[in-house]
């Protein structure tokens, strides 16, 4: 396991993870489709997961990887709930464009 980090330096993982995170952010900010935004959030989440795993390896500490399992499980639950909400919204207004979701405007 050690050599994984020797072959590819830890900084590359960080770059990759940052890149993924930024992609996620831009996806969330600039897409109007709720499903795509949802996917972007997942990408951000996974970017963080990746980072957790990398640092866990780096520090020789398994708790980071355990944490990732929790996080994936929670993410799965979140996806289930989130998609259910989206389906509910779609049934009501026949669209999942977030610009049309303004019913709670103050």
């Amino acid at each position: 396991m050690q050599n994984v980090l020797q072959q590819i330096g830890i900084e590359n993982y960080i770059y990759l993870s940052t890149l993924l995170f930024c992609i996620g952010i831009f996806g969330v900010l600039f897409r109007r489709n709720a499903i795509v935004m949802f996917m972007s959030i997942e990408i951000m989440l996974n970017a963080v997961n990746l980072l957790l795993v990398v640092f866990s390896t780096y520090h020789q500490d398994a708790s980071g990887q355990v944490f990732v399992f929790f996080s994936m499980a929670v993410a799965a639950a979140e996806v289930a709930v989130g998609l259910a909400i989206l389906v509910g919204i779609y049934r009501n207004i026949h669209s999942i464009d977030i610009d049309k979701l303004k019913n709670l405007k103050g």
Binding site: I25, V28, L29, R32, I98, D99, L101, K102, K105, G106
Partner: peptide, 17 residues
């Protein structure tokens, strides 16, 4: 202040980020 709460999720996210 009411104007800020315009109901656009995108705007909220943007402000949040």
């Amino acid at each position: 202040g009411k104007v800020l709460q315009n109901g656009s999720v995108g705007f909220y996210l943007f402000a949040f980020v």
